[in-house]
Amino acid sequence: MSNSELKHHDYHLIDPSPWPILGAASAFTTAVGAIIWMKSLDDGDGVFGVTGWLPFAIGFTMILVTMFVWWRDVIKEARVDKALTPVVQIHLRYGMIMFIMSEVMFFVAWFWAYFDVALFPGAGVMGFEAREAITGGHWPPMVTETDGGYFKGTFDPWHLPLLNTIILLTSGATVTYAHHALLKDDRKGLIIGLLLTVILGVSFTVFQAIEYMDAPFTFGGHIYGSTFFMATGFHGLHVIIGTIFLAVCLVRAIKGHFTPQQHFGFEAAAWYWHFVDVVWLFLFVAVYVWGAGTPVTH
């Protein structure tokens, strides 16, 4: 802190930083790159005569770099400057809670789209004739003559999805184990707990990828695959983000960054992981179990 000897309060006044404007430039590059990439699919012309995924990759890499240097500063402010006073740590807690609340609302959109069709598959409802022709008026959808072959059945929820449920629930336990170890200043226990959590997180992603490759339905063309892949896909993305977050905490634990008194980075990762876990439970119950069934031909 440049003027810590002057201030008469415990708040953290941050010096000017180049990372926000770099982050905004990265977001802009990523957005334009994403459009160029999407418009290059299926031999499209791209935008402004530019095609391909490269602009997107550049923008996305810039975002990753921004996050790295930004959070490196935060960690330095916590460890070297000792700027994270108790009140500043409360700020971070509030910030993380708010962020997770907004994430919950993001998932509300996917569940809304899912229940819009799962609760109202269109049986005999005026105005839903087109939907009924696709779903057979039934959820999970029937295999109908008009569905274009994009849907051939659902997953068995008691196979890989059940395994993934057990994996995520176990990882919730291991991250809690790590937390208790941290509170008892047991660094070895913390590292083992985090390592197990990261391994479980990676396993979940691997199993989910295997499952995706065997899907008897597609993302495009049919509402079942659209809602399924959008909801589980964004969940999977959050699992990957959460796994990276925990892996960063693992590295920091090995470096000895955390103390029983101050370890908000770890707590935020654990909260985020529990959030990801709870979303999965809703997905498992609503999409995999309640929405499962033997495919019926109409």
Binding site: G122, I223, S226
Partner: peptide
């Protein structure tokens, strides 16, 4: 990407 959230032809709304 050809999803059909809002396209009745694929069961959307």
């Amino acid at each position: 990407f050809g999803t059909t959230f809002f396209d009745p032809a694929g069961g959307g709304d």
